[in-house]
Design a protein around this nucleic acid. Structure first.
Lengths: 349, 349
DNA sequence: CGAGCTAACTGAATCGATCCAGATGGCGAA
DNA sequence: TTCGCCATCTGGATCGATTCAGTTAGCTCG
C-alpha cells in the first residue's frame, strides 16, 4: 500500500502532459502561457487537491521567504501590552500584508544572542528599541536588509521621531506655568535595571544613545532655559512601561510631603503619565491644579478620559508602515525622523 | 571578478576534506562524530564566516520549518491591544521559544480566505477566536496540526475555559444583591456587525457557537434562577473590545433616566467593565452603590485601581502555553477546558 | 517563398541542506 | 588469527519548486 504522498507540481505536470516549467508559470506568470492551458492546469490542480507551489521549496529556490522578522527589545508579554509597540506592529503588518508578506515575531529578551531556527530565513529585519550594544545584532545575516526603529545601528537606516525637540517643546510649555517643583519620570535609560529615584550626578552616567536619552536632554534644555538647574531637578526611573512596575515608584512620589511633592511631572510616556493621573486622583490631588502632568506618545487612552492628557503625539502606526516599506524596498532605505505634534490636553493646559 | 557567493555547507566540507554528511552532523548530531573533528569543523566554520545550515534548505529537506503560525480573528491593531490576546500570545511564545520555534503572526481579518505566501510552511496552526464558519480554515494545510482556542473546529482539538458555568456563577453572585434592573453587555455574538442595544427576541438569533454565546447562556441561566426573565433583561452589543467602540454604547446606557438605568451590568470582558467604571465615575455614579459591575478575564488593570473589579479570572497565558505544547506534540492533542476563578472585587462585592 | 519574429512551451540544472545505506578501520574476544 | 562489532565517516539521492536557454509552430511581410 503506497503512502498517499503529497501531490507535487511535478505530479501535476505529468498528469497533464506538460512540463513543470509550464505548471510553475501557470501559478506565477499567467502571461507566459495561453489562458486556455492555464485554465486547464488550475482546474486539474483543484481536482487533484494541489494547493499551489510549496512555500519551503520556493523559498529555497528563489532565496526569498516572504517573511519579515520584527525583533522587539522587551519580552512579548510586555511589548504586546504596550500601545506604542502594538501600533508599530500593526503598521508593519498592514504593509506586509498588502504585499503578500508575513510577520515573524521575535523578542530579543528570550533569545540568547542566537537566532532561533527559522528566524534566519527572514527576508529582512525590523528591529525595535534595542540597546545599541545588543550582541544579538551581530547574529543577523549581514546581507539582509535591516531597519532600526527608535535606536541606531551603525551603517543601517533608522527611524526616529524628533525626541529631543519634542520634549524640549512640551517641557517649555509646561514650565511656562512656573511650577515650583518640577520632576521627571524616565523610562529605562541604560541596559542595567534601575527602578526608583536617581541620585543627582549619576543621572546620565552610562546612558547609551537611546530615545530616552534624547527625551531627557530635551527636558533638561527646557529646564535650563527656565532657570531650573537640571542637575538638581528630581528624577525617577521606571524600568518597564507598565502600570505594575511604575505604580510603586509613582506612589512614593505622590506620597511625599506637600513641600517636597513635585507640582509638575514630565513623563516619558503616556502610560506613566496616566498611571500618575489615576494614582493622583485616588489621593484627592487635583490635576492640573495640584499637579501638572505631561506624557509622550499620544495613545488613545489618554484622550478618552477627563482630564485629557497633555502629550506629544507620535504616529507609531506610520512609523511601522515606513519601516515595512523600507524593508520591502518600496521606499529608499535611508534614516528618517518623523514629525511629532504637541497635544494640549487638560492635564497641563 | 567572481561574485563572493555565500558560503555553503558543501564549501566547508570541501575545504576541510570531509563529506557534507559529516559537516551536517557536526551541527545537528554531535554524537555522530569525534569531538576533535567536530571542533575542527566548527572552528573552520567560524573562520570562514559560515553561519550554520541554511534554514530554507533545511526546511525543504526535513519538511519542518520550526515555525508555528498563530491566526488571530481580529486585526492585529485590535488584537495586540487586547490584554487577553496578548497574554495568549506570550504564553505561546514562551513555549515556542524554549523549543527553538518561532511565531508567525497572522490576522484572519486581512487575509481573504487565502493564506499569504509563507504562512503555508508553518509546522502547525494555533487559531484564536474565529467564527466557526470562517472559510479561511479550509485553506490551511489539512495534515498540519491545528489547535482552536476559544472556539471549535470539527475534528480538531480545542481549548476553552468553562465560560457557561463561570458566567452562571458570577451572575448568581451579582444577583444575590437583588438588583432591580440588571443588564448585560455582550461582545460580538455573530459574524455580522452590531453595536448598541439588542431587540429582545432577536438576541440569540443566528448566534454561532462561540464563547460569547456560552457566556450569555450562563448569564441567562442565573437570571432565570433569580426570577428575572432573560428575554426582557436589556442587552447591548459591543462589536469590538476596545474603549473607543464601547464608550458610546456605554455612555448611552449610563445616560438613561434613573428609572431605566441598570443598577447591575454583567459585562463579557474586563475591558468593557473598566470602561463602564470610568464613564460611571465621570458621571458621579458610585460603584457599587449606584451601579454594580462585573467583568470577565481578570486582566491586571482591573485589580490596580479602586474599586477593584469583580470578575472571572482566566489564565490566558497558560492557555497559550497549552496550545503551544499541543501543537509541538509535547502534550497529547485533545480538547480541554481550563478552570476559571471567581474574583471578588469591590465593583460588585 | 523563405526569412524573421513572436508566443507558447520544454528539459534540465539548480537552490543547500539531510539522511539513508554502506565503507572503513581499530579493537576485543574467541 | 579471524570474526564481529562499534565508532566514525562517506556518497549520492532527495526534498519541490524556479529559471534559463533553448525548441517548435504559426504568422507576417517583403
Amino acid at each position: 500500500m503506497p503512502t498517499p504522498r503529497r501531490i507535487t507540481l511535478k505530479d501535476l505536470a505529468r498528469e497533464l502532459g506538460v512540463s513543470t516549467a509550464t505548471v510553475s508559470n501557470a501559478f506565477n506568470r499567467p502571461d507566459q502561457l495561453s489562458p486556455a492551458l492555464r485554465e486547464r492546469i488550475l482546474g486539474e490542480a483543484k481536482r487533484l487537491g494541489y494547493r499551489g507551489p510549496d512555500a519551503k521549496a520556493r523559498s529555497l529556490r528563489t532565496g526569498r521567504s516572504r517573511i519579515i522578522a520584527v525583533i522587539l527589545a522587551e519580552s512579548l508579554t510586555y511589548s504586546l501590552n504596550d500601545a506604542v509597540a502594538s501600533e508599530l506592529l500593526s503598521g508593519v503588518a498592514e504593509v506586509l500584508d498588502a504585499q503578500g508578506h508575513t510577520l515573524l515575531l521575535l523578542s530579543a529578551r528570550q533569545m540568547q544572542s542566537e537566532l532561533p531556527g527559522a528566524a534566519s530565513m527572514a527576508d529582512g529585519y525590523i528591529v525595535y528599541g534595542l540597546m545599541p550594544s545588543e550582541t544579538l545584532l551581530e547574529s543577523l545575516p549581514p546581507q539582509a536588509p535591516l531597519v532600526a526603529v527608535d535606536f541606531d545601528v551603525t551603517g543601517r537606516p533608522s527611524l526616529h521621531v524628533d525626541d529631543e525637540p519634542a520634549c524640549h517643546l512640551i517641557a517649555r510649555h509646561a514650565l511656562a506655568s512656573r511650577p515650583r517643583r518640577p520632576g521627571i519620570i524616565n523610562l529605562r535609560l541604560t541596559a542595567e535595571p534601575c527602578n526608583g529615584p536617581i541620585v543627582p550626578g549619576q543621572r546620565l552616567l552610562g546612558a547609551e544613545q537611546t530615545i530616552t536619552r534624547s527625551r531627557l536632554l530635551g527636558f533638561h534644555r527646557a529646564l535650563d532655559e527656565a532657570g531650573h538647574d537640571p542637575a538638581v531637578v528630581p528624577m525617577w526611573n521606571i524600568e518597564e512601561n507598565t502600570f505594575e512596575v511604575s505604580a510603586p515608584v509613582i506612589e512614593a512620589i505622590l506620597d511625599l510631603p506637600d513641600t517636597e511633592r513635585p507640582d509638575l511631572l514630565l513623563c516619558m510616556s503616556d502610560r506613566i503619565a496616566l498611571t500618575a493621573l489615576t494614582l493622583a486622583e485616588e489621593r484627592g490631588l487635583r490635576v492640573p491644579e495640584d499637579l501638572r502632568l505631561t506624557g509622550f506618545d499620544g495613545i488613545a487612552e489618554g484622550q478618552y478620559r477627563a482630564p485629557r492628557l497633555t502629550t506629544v503625539r507620535q504616529d507609531s502606526v506610520e512609523k511601522g508602515r515606513q519601516a515595512a516599506r523600507m524593508i520591502l524596498g518600496l521606499e529608499a532605505p535611508r534614516s528618517r525622523t518623523l514629525a511629532t505634534e504637541l497635544w494640549l490636553g487638560d492635564s497641563c493646559p
